[in-house]
Design a protein around this nucleic acid. Structure first.
Lengths: 158, 158
DNA sequence: ACCCGATCGTTGAACCCTCAACTGTAGTGG
DNA sequence: CCACTACAGTTGAGGGTTCAACGATCGGGT
């Protein structure tokens, strides 16, 4: 019954697993060491910095940063303690909350960005050929489209 | 100074990040729900099951499962509580310990495998063309070779 | 006006991972 | 034989994530 992986698929799966593990561990460790924040929190700050008024509803922010609502709620609590984000009540919906990027948060992001971009470049774009970068983009697009269709929203789905 | 990402690189990086996050969240969640173990632990059981005598030195096991020594130590402790692995003293080196896969552990792995393989197939191999699978393997190989050269062993490096 | 299901967001417990510090043993040079 | 460094593995604290449960509000149907 089970459609087992053949030898070639096995090999691809294993090296894929290995490279992702190594890559994200490395990227995350470098960001943590240089800027004192996990990659997830960096993503949150980025999405906020791009939003008009540097503010977003919690659930919009969760969607844009591929985070569950719960994870984001914890993350924003932590980021509030660092003084990088603050919560504000949402005027149009009494249930809602908005996360607002503070000036300190924006400064922290500006300080973290160059080193992080350099990490990504060194470990991802430099070793790959332009053609491989293109392929990786296309592969990623197919996978995330497929997952979005099959899995609904990232987490907390029905 | 900073070599910022151009528009195309930005787009590739973001969709890559997104697909990675969604994919591993999905795979991990399915494995956790169906078999009650995180993907990391599954990997540990797999490596043990492939070793002669279904046993390996802790640090060899750590290397093969892309894990830090610390992580593996915690993981094996947890797996011992489940009765899936046991520790034995290493005869040739009094510092060392061996992790041994128990029959219950092997059975748990056999029970988990079909569902996990199915997840991987559904979310990775099915949506990609054979050519894309080949490309993904090659890209992954380049990245992990590069990281191994630049970063030393996975974690706990000097 | 009222109910009721859906949505927004939070909380706490359990779990996993990281990091740094630590124990104990191996191997090596004097 | 004695340091002394290097190695194997563990431990505990701190922090991030998940999951399920919860309080609160919204909005449509009656």
């Amino acid at each position: 019954m089970t459609r087992w992986l053949n030898v070639g698929e096995q090999a691809v799966w294993r090296v894929f697993l290995e490279s992702h593990q190594m890559f994200f561990d490395q990227i995350g460790r470098e960001l943590q060491q240089e800027s004192g924040m996990p990659h997830t929190y960096y993503e949150v700050l980025v999405r906020l910095s791009e939003a008009p008024g540097r503010r977003l509803r919690m659930s919009e922010l969760a969607d844009r940063s591929q985070s569950s609502r719960s994870r984001l709620s914890h993350a924003v609590s932590r980021l509030e303690e660092s003084g990088w984000v603050r919560r504000e009540a949402c005027p149009s919906d009494a249930r809602g909350a908005e996360a607002v990027l503070t000036d300190e948060g924006f400064a922290a992001l500006e300080a973290a960005a160059p080193g992080h971009v350099e990490s990504v470049r060194r470990h991802l774009f430099d070793p790959l050929s332009p053609e491989q970068v293109r392929q990786l983009g296309e592969i990623s697009r197919v996978l995330s489209d497929h997952l979005r269709a099959a899995g609904g929203t990232p987490h907390d789905c029905s």
